[in-house]
Design a protein around this nucleic acid. Structure first.
Length: 129
DNA sequence: AGCGTGACGTATA
DNA sequence: TTATACGCCACGC
């Protein structure tokens, strides 16, 4: 790629400021989601004290491919649906990743969702974020 | 600079 | 119970 030829080449969608702080918190939290478990955008938002900004969590995940060790596939919506699957390469990667961890998926939805749901508030200390 | 959109979720009707 | 409305706010056009 010719990213060295003059153009500013905006490397990161986010750079500085409060937004990146929020994103960073989202990523830090996500790194604690255990294999074989899932959580939701809303649960993350609530845990981070932004209960009404769950959309921003989704936006953060959209950018998570720039990050390391962030299991974006373990974040689903509050009904256990794989609402982010179209943002993964291929059409079944998100589902495949989850099934490889033992999370059963049917029709883009986590089966027995409450059994696999991992609530950050039950396992993490808000003071650490 | 304004408008529509969206990996969401809750509140009303 | 299903259907809209709306809060949220970064981002692309």
């Amino acid at each position: 790629m010719s990213n060295c030829s003059g153009k500013k080449a905006k490397p990161l969608p986010i750079s500085v400021g409060a937004l990146s702080d929020f994103y960073s918190r989202v990523y830090a939290l996500c790194r604690h989601i255990p294999e074989g478990r899932v959580t939701s955008y809303g649960a993350i938002a609530k845990f981070l004290g932004a209960a009404r900004s769950s959309r921003m969590v989704g936006y953060a995940m959209n950018n998570s491919f720039n990050e390391q060790g962030v299991p974006a596939h373990r974040v689903v919506n509050r009904l256990g649906m794989l609402s982010g699957k179209h943002h993964f390469p291929g059409s079944t990667l998100m589902q495949d990743l989850l099934e490889n961890e033992g999370v059963p998926i049917l029709n883009d939805r986590v089966q027995n969702f409450d059994q696999y749901f991992w609530n950050p508030a039950d396992h993490l200390d808000p003071k650490d974020f």
